[in-house]
Simulated scan of single mutants.
Amino acid sequence: MSGTNTHVPAVLAHELPNPVPRDELAACPVNDLFRRIGDKWSMLLVIMLGKRRYRYNELHRSIEGISQRMLTRTLRDLENDGLVRREVFPTVPPSVEYSLTPLGESLLEPLSALAEWAVRNSPVTAAPRP
């Protein structure tokens, strides 16, 4: 943010090269984050796990239309990204619980701001385009 103008959004505070180099765009942490959490299921899982811990089957039953394979893959990706923690309990059979890591919890506030923006602007963004 600019020191003289505090109303400049952070994303506008830095000059972008013209043209933006392809490799720079590919290495951008913002684009990387949106690629990682912008799929069909990731944000939903982060939001659900932000409310409480879930067992795998509980999650599967709670999300209509997600296959076991996709749930496993999405949870594994979120775990690899450091957003979700997988905890195995030594029971017979073993039980597994998923929760957000501190990094995942830190994503909830900006994700909430983005969600509020989407809901507030949905009449405009959902309108047919000319």
Score class of each variant (00 low, 15 high):
L45Y: 03
R53E: 07
R85W: 07
V46D: 02
R36E: 13
L107I: 14
L25P: 08
G50P: 11
N5C: 13
W41V: 00
D81V: 02
D32H: 15
M70K: 07
L108V: 07
N80Y: 11
D32C: 14
R35G: 05
A118T: 09
E109I: 10
A26I: 15
A13Y: 06
A26D: 12
M1Q: 12
P123Q: 05
A127P: 11
L25D: 04
E105W: 01
L111K: 02
L108R: 09
P93R: 02
L25T: 06
G104Y: 02
W117D: 11
Q68T: 08
P90F: 15
A13V: 07
L16P: 05
P90S: 10
R53H: 08
M43I: 09
A10S: 11
N121Q: 02
L71R: 00
N80V: 07
V92R: 12
T101A: 05
V119I: 15
L100Q: 01
D23L: 14
F89W: 09
E105F: 10
R129H: 12
N5D: 15
L44N: 03
E105T: 13
F89V: 07
R129W: 14
L100G: 03
R86E: 14
V124I: 13
L45W: 00
P29F: 15
N57P: 02
D39H: 08
E87Y: 08
R85G: 01
S99M: 10
E105R: 14
N121P: 03
E15W: 04
V96N: 03
I47N: 07
L44Y: 05
T74L: 00
L49P: 04
M43H: 10
V88A: 11
F89C: 06
